[in-house]
Design a protein around this nucleic acid. Structure first.
Lengths: 135, 135
DNA sequence: CTTTGTGCAAATTCTTTGCACCAAA
DNA sequence: TTTGGTGCAAAGAATTTGCACAAAG
């Protein structure tokens, strides 16, 4: 939890008990969780935690560049602490998301456009994960 | 409108007045519209049209492969009649979406994975469009 | 007739907002 | 104190569901 505390400072985020707990969860659980998953995971040990705070916290994290908000899941917002260039795979059946690191770096290249300005790329794959394939 | 009628048959979709109107709108307005935009555009000339029907219709179109549902916009579902391989650009400021066709075809290549099964790719760019750049 | 499609209203789900209280500097 | 953070309850927005009626074959 101390790690999370320090980690937040790197992004000029003032650590609070709640913020450190959320960041700690993100760092230890690389599952691209939804707001609800984060809330449900933390509320047992932090009974006073509110979902509003989880929303506020992640908005702040995204604004400060500490986490990426993913657009891959139409249903819920998903968050990723890994801000390096990589793609994602969403299982349509169970909704789990996994990282895809082994792509050519040029896939994440941002095209040079004169008319409009691109500042981010997101590469998403969809399909069925190994667990769901069997069913 | 007759075109839309024929177009739907290609995807084994039984044309109804509503379905043809929705498909006609999609074919003539390549703006990756939301459900609401489609509904608002059609309801003046089809006063009895309901939003439920627009939802049902697009679910059917997606299921039959006649349109693609885009995950690029966190707020609303967006639909694209162009099912060829291409990427999208979302303007964070005004929410407009434009097509990006000039990408290397290998960007849309689906990686061979043994464990899980990929069936679709989506490449999304984010930034500011020319109109919004000025403001 | 029988099956399929449509549309209303209600319900659900996710997210945002307003505001009062708490905590840290 | 004063500023910023938290959390409750209510509001808002997008989507889904249940069901009755209409249309098509």
């Amino acid at each position: 939890m101390l790690e999370s505390h320090q980690y937040l400072r790197q992004f000029s985020i003032k650590p609070s008990v709640q913020r450190s707990a959320v960041m700690n969860f993100l760092l230890k659980n690389r599952i691209h969780p939804t707001i609800d998953e984060i809330y449900l995971a933390l509320s047992p040990t932090m009974p006073t935690l509110s979902k509003t705070t989880v929303y506020n916290t992640l908005d702040l994290f995204v604004e400060r560049g500490a986490v990426r908000a993913l657009a891959i899941d139409e249903k819920n917002a998903r968050y990723d602490v890994d801000i390096s260039a990589h793609a994602h795979f969403l299982c349509r059946s169970c909704g789990s998301i996994r990282d895809i690191f082994d792509l050519k770096p040029n896939m994440f290249h941002i095209p040079d456009t004169t008319s409009f300005k691109i500042d981010a790329v997101e590469i998403s794959y969809f399909g069925t994960c190994e667990k769901c394939k069997g069913n």
